[in-house]
Write a protein that binds this DNA or RNA. Structure first.
Length: 452
RNA sequence: GACCCGUUCGUCUAGCGGUUAGGACUCCGCCCUUUCACGGCGGCAACACGGGUUCGAGUCCCGUACGGGUCGCCA
């Protein structure tokens, strides 16, 4: 059987991490088995449908690199891939049910007769789940009254206005699009018997189901769009790498069973399969997500890193075309967890005016003999004619010598004077990047600032 | 309320009848070091509870508790 999976988002205007992970699992499964990944837009609810909302989701998927083989913009012979354009197909399938007397009209709506017997879902993750829909549906929990009330167990599949209900179109589309495996959130597990009943009534074979555990917040609540790490576009803006986000999402609910945690996209495709999926819900851990991103950042080839970091330098007002960019990235790539943190770390080398951290200044200014130190430093640096790391280092060393001090004692004042802070990337390479004039000027000015 | 799924360090997880219960993130200590990071070494920290089954249970069974989900003319 050829593998065909699908991701079926509703165009809500943002790609949520939960949806993205579902998409990822379906994509990985399809790629792993040499199958096809279909994207279908579930826009039957006209009130919530809008083009812009869809664009955001497609952008998110594209950024993650989850290319769909069939769907909007990709073609395919099972289209249209918008449910809003599949009305005739649904009508045709409804007619099939009508002919077999599986449906009846009820107050303008159309209901599907639910069978009064047990239906078993053979779930690849959760195991067998058996339910009697008729019995289950005969009662309904009324949230307002807080009690059970009698209910019609038969499923409404078409509204009086002629629009169709999710359960029905979902099943019809999965049949029409020849979906072989449905990987979706566990919140759909309880709905699946309804879907199986529909497949059977339509004389179609149901796909294989795999319901994956949900991702929750640290406190166990559902992740909403306001929670940190909930929306994919935020990862883009915050300087995450798509491979890292995929990697972390894969880890929430799936394990390779060995101790490997960092995977390239290709490795995930190779290793991912349903038997590695867990059954228990997981809690989203932003710290670990940051760590995964940092690991991917460390592994990036320099030219790839430069390309990825360029937009962030531009956004920070630094010229991404500056020839020193490569050297700058080399200095910060192992101390930043996100691309967005990088420009700030090397900014002092790229701009004329820097901000001095008051605490850092106070710490250095309070030192005994700081005036002499800065003066010696400035003089020493001024005499360097070949502005390279070795020369700068020995200049600082010699300057310290003249005052009978160690080089280390000179480094902090030098750092604060030139960088404005007590911490940051390796100082000497930073000084090389700044250029002699700027460094000397800063040390001079800093000496004045401290003296006054 | 009924039904369904789940429960190993704070978090992500390995484990599939016999392990000093392993790894990772976080946190702490030490080392490296011109700061911060990176890196290296070490440490804290878990089988929800109660019954079975078994020579032996984190692993199997049954309860209980807790968490999540579903019960729409939302998807």
């Amino acid at each position: 059987m050829s593998v065909r999976t699908r991701f079926a988002p509703s165009p809500t205007g943002f790609l949520h991490i939960g949806g993205a992970r579902t998409a990822l699992y379906n994509w990985l499964y399809a790629r792993h088995h040499g199958g096809v990944f279909v994207l279908r837009v579930e826009d039957t609810d006209a009130a919530r449908h809008n083009e812009e909302g869809l664009a955001k989701i497609l952008d998110g998927l594209a950024w993650l690199g989850l290319q769909w083989d069939e769907g909007p913009g990709a073609g395919g012979d099972c289209g249209p891939y918008y449910q809003s354009q599949r009305r005739e197909i649904y009508d045709r399938y409804l007619e099939k049910l009508r002919e077999a007397d599986h449906v009846y009209e009820d107050d303008g709506a159309i209901r599907f007769r639910v069978p009064d017997r047990e239906i078993t879902v053979h779930d690849r993750v959760c195991g067998d789940v058996t339910v009697n829909l008729h019995q289950q549906g005969s009662k309904r929990w009324d949230a307002e009254q807080k009690r059970e009330v009698a209910a019609n167990p038969d499923l409404v599949i078409r509204r009086p206005d002629g629009s169709y209900i999710f359960h029905f179109v979902n099943v019809v589309d999965d049949i029409e699009m020849r979906i072989s495996h449905v990987i979706r959130g566990e919140d759909h597990l309880s709905n699946t018997p309804k879907h199986l009943a529909l497949f059977e009534a339509l004389g179609a074979e149901a796909p294989i189901y795999a319901h994956i555990p949900l991702n929750l917040n640290q406190d166990g609540s559902k992740m909403s769009k306001r929670d940190q790490g909930a929306l994919i576009h935020e990862y883009v803006e915050d300087g995450f790498l798509p491979e890292a986000v995929n990697n972390y999402m894969a880890l929430l609910g799936w394990s390779s069973k060995d101790d490997q945690e960092i995977f390239t996209g290709a490795e995930l495709v190779e290793r991912f399969d349903i038997d590695g999926i867990n059954r228990a819900n997981s809690k989203f851990d932003y710290e670990k997500c940051l760590w995964v991103n940092a690991e991917h950042l460390k592994r990036l080839a320099p030219d790839v890193l430069a390309k990825a970091a360029a937009p962030f330098f531009e956004k920070a007002g630094l010229d991404p075309g500056d020839p020193r960019l490569g050297a700058a990235l080399g200095l910060v790539r192992e101390r930043a967890q996100r691309l967005s943190e990088m420009p700030g770390l090397v900014k002092p080398a790229f701009v004329e005016e820097i901000d001095y951290d008051p605490d850092a200044v106070a710490k250095v200014a309070g030192r005994e003999g700081i005036g002499e130190v800065l003066q010696a430093l400035a003089e020493g640096l001024r005499r360097v004619d070949d502005w390279c790391e070795d020369q700068i280092k020995s200049a600082i060393h010699d300057a310290a010598d003249t005052l009978g001090q160690k080089m280390g004692a000179f480094m902090l004042p030098c750092r604060v004077a030139t960088m404005g802070s007590t911490s940051g990337p390796d100082l000497v390479p930073m000084m090389v990047m700044m250029g002699k004039d700027r460094v000397v000027k800063r040390v001079d000015e800093f000496a004045q600032r401290v003296a006054s």
